[in-house]
Amino acid sequence: MNAVVRNTVPDTAVPVIETRALGKVYSPGTPAEVVALRDVDMRIGGGELVSIMGPSGSGKSTLMNLIGCLDTPSSGQYLCGGIDIARLDAEERAQLRLEKIGFVFQGFNLLSRMSALENVAMPMGYAGVPREERLQRAREALAVVGLAERAGHRPSELSGGQQQRVAIARALVNRPSILLADEPTGALDSRTGEEILALFKRLQDEGQTVVLITHDAEVAAHCGRVLEMHDGRLHERLHERAGGGA
């Protein structure tokens, strides 16, 4: 990765993530209709560390699913690296998701029978990367997160923080444009959580775009920008700790 730090989005920048009046309605036109997102406008540039914060039911998980190409909007537009998602069919969206977006989850989602190396290498199998290259890139990704010496260990032999580092390595291994982390410190103690947040900051310093989904204001404060969700609407909070955290 190139050593690039960018905590603001210049007007001339091509955003990695851009939404225009994005909306999502579940069960439209029925008594069970739920308006989850309302006219969300958002721009996130390359190399930013951004949090999307809000309580349960605020719409942040719906927004994460849309920007992660796990769901499609009911209205508005989403551009991922300048690509209009609405123009892609399901197979093309899945390919874009594989190539452009790395996911990190609260529960790690590692396969218990596989070693750390095998877990990290797995996404490249879906991308058709040859086995030797998969293993080499997996070793490099584990080294990035400080776990090169744990490559042969299974998840049960690793601490929670180490498991989350493996999950981050797995998310990085296809060299995505966007690292999307959903409550990545939620299953960790405070000290280990701080270490994971410091790792995200280091990745940002190396040019990686990182988006954290969280309900925790202390986690959000580690990010250069804080976007708050309330009742399906997005607002930006300005704070004094821009780019801080570690």
Rank of each mutant, 00 (worst) to 15 (best):
R113V: 12
D205S: 14
G107H: 14
R175L: 04
V50I: 13
S61V: 04
D41V: 00
Q164F: 00
T209F: 11
E240H: 15
I178E: 00
R225A: 11
S56C: 09
E149F: 07
L110Y: 03
E157Y: 06
R154V: 10
T12Q: 13
G161H: 00
D231E: 15
A94D: 13
M124V: 07
L199N: 02
V144Q: 14
Y26D: 02
R225M: 09
V219S: 09
Q106S: 04
S112L: 04
A116K: 03
A143V: 06
R113L: 14
V144T: 15
A220L: 11
E194T: 14
A21D: 12
V34F: 10
M64S: 13
P184D: 01
S190K: 12
Y126L: 13
N109R: 10
F103A: 12
G207T: 03
L22C: 04
V25K: 08
G29C: 07
V104I: 13
R38M: 02
E149V: 12
A94W: 00
L49H: 02
G107E: 15
M124I: 03
Q106A: 02
Q162Y: 09
L158N: 07
V50P: 01
G193A: 06
E48V: 10
R175V: 12
I168Y: 11
E140G: 04
L172T: 00
C80T: 06
R6H: 11
C69I: 12
I178M: 14
H239L: 13
S177N: 11
A171E: 02
G23D: 05
S156L: 15
M64I: 08
E194M: 13
A151C: 06
A138E: 02
R20V: 15
I168D: 01
L88M: 13
A246Q: 07
A169Q: 05
N65F: 11
T192L: 03
A220T: 08
R150W: 13
M122N: 07
F108Q: 00
A242Q: 15
S190A: 11
G82E: 11
P130I: 11
L227F: 14
K24H: 09
K60W: 08
D89W: 10
H239C: 14
T8I: 15
H222T: 15
C80H: 13
Q164S: 03
V210N: 10
A116R: 03
L63G: 07
A13M: 04
P10L: 10
Q162K: 08
L158Y: 12
P155S: 13
P15Q: 09
G232N: 07
L227E: 06
A36T: 05
A21E: 10
E206S: 12
T209S: 08
L197I: 02
L197W: 00
L142S: 01
R38G: 01
